[in-house]
Design a protein around this nucleic acid. Structure first.
Lengths: 238, 238
DNA sequence: TTTATCAACTTATTATAACAAGTTAAGAAT
DNA sequence: ATTCTTAACTTGTTATAATAAGTTGATAAA
């Protein structure tokens, strides 16, 4: 929730290079400037530059090759739910629309919640949001999101159609997703899910349960996602 | 394919600590020795120790907290297909059995292969293996594996029932999985798949297509996996 | 022409050093 | 007893330095 007053240099360089890659300044297969060149360019020493590159490699933006250099590795991401970024950012939100089914509302946690909750989370109650996400006007995701009501003033009044929930949390509350865990299943569409995703009852649906860790210790974002994977696949890298 | 003659120190420490975590020397929630203590214990300097810890954190074995220390973070992995390690290592292969459906055989690549192949891969032909994996004698995974026939002498003669394909590649050919990408779908069980996984035709099945990168540039391991997720979920972290 | 060698790159490894910043618990002040 | 301060930890950041090892293309030798 607190952003540090000074952003580390290696983080700055990471953000710069990441943006350049996403903006197409460096394209897939391109060689990044060498470590020594980056040192000169940005006035840093090699350990600092190497830390940036290491993080980039770790997040899958580049591959490092001893003797050659750092090569941009941007994957063709179909409808990729990117691990950390959530649905929107992965797709480039060009043709992705969001429809709020249940506006942000404060309520007690469900009794049989899919993940184990802490005392503090239970006491705080949960913010509940349900959304339908359409790709080219075809419903693809139906997601149910829950987050403990800890330090999230006025969240129930916020608007965020056509915008990632995660972006909203970052911009308004300085909450960043640091990682998480998920369970994946193939299930049969219930009547409700089938209606939302425009599927006949009994058709296969991808079911995800995710617990996402934030930079705010003890605060987690929980999502249950139903995906229509008839036309698209969930894409991921590891 | 070539293992370096000298294993770096940070790698050695990584392996030691990882083994200790997996063996239960350090348990979930435990505090690892501090960086300075590790320096003394293993005769390394802090950057070296920090690199080991950084990799461990990255692979999800520990979480680092400034001011506190490194805390062991072992996730309860249901039937987790661990991203890099493949199915076996994730589960601890206690109650997991493997049945070879199609023994390793050299054949030309299928015409409509799920991933784009390089010239070299096509020329080399592919090693094809089909397996059924049972958990507590219940069939859970049916997987089809393909790998280009590059520098894999006598692979068609190898035995590896009840053993990870990936372990076999590592032990016999020094091939390590470095990362990869995957597509996930929910599909309907075909007659064949249903028979293998003991499901009725039409039941939902999780379908994964994976392309795994190895330490041998240009050599990839391709897997198509069908999962019965009635009782178990696929577990992952990010 | 072809092959072999080598110089000039690249990243990888490792050590030393100093200071910043978060955490914790003991002890002092209230 | 309670609160506050502080000392002693912890990891985080950053700089400097030297050597190892992989890659590539130019050059020399065959």
């Amino acid at each position: 929730m607190i952003s540090p007053r000074t952003i580390p240099q290696h983080r700055k360089l990471y953000e710069i290079l990441r943006k350049h890659i996403l903006d197409g300044v460096y394209r897939e297969g391109d060689l990044l400037p060498s470590e020594n060149e980056l040192c000169q360019l940005y006035g840093m020493t090699r350990p600092t530059v190497r830390q940036s590159l290491s993080t980039l490699a770790n997040d899958g933006y580049i591959r490092k090759h001893q003797g050659k250099g750092s090569i941009v590795h941007q994957l063709p991401r179909e409808i990729g739910i990117l691990s950390v970024s959530g649905t929107t950012s992965a797709l480039g939100d060009r043709n992705l629309k969001t429809k709020i089914i249940v506006k942000p509302v404060l309520m007690p946690w469900p009794d049989d919640f899919m993940f184990k909750l802490s005392e503090l989370e239970i006491e705080s109650g949960c913010i509940h949001i349900e959304r339908l996400r359409l790709l080219d006007d075809v419903p693809v995701f139906y997601d149910i999101n829950n987050i403990a009501n800890i330090n999230l003033p006025r969240i129930t009044a916020r608007q965020f159609e056509n915008r990632s929930l995660i972006e909203m949390l970052r911009d308004n509350y300085h909450i960043e997703i640091k990682g998480g865990e998920q369970r994946i299943k193939a299930i049969t569409a219930s009547l409700t899910i089938g209606r939302f995703l425009n599927l006949k009852k009994g058709q296969p649906v991808l079911h995800l349960e995710r617990k996402m860790e934030t930079n705010n210790p003890g605060l987690f974002l929980y999502s249950e996602i139903f995906c229509n994977t008839e036309k698209y696949s969930i894409f991921g890298e590891f």
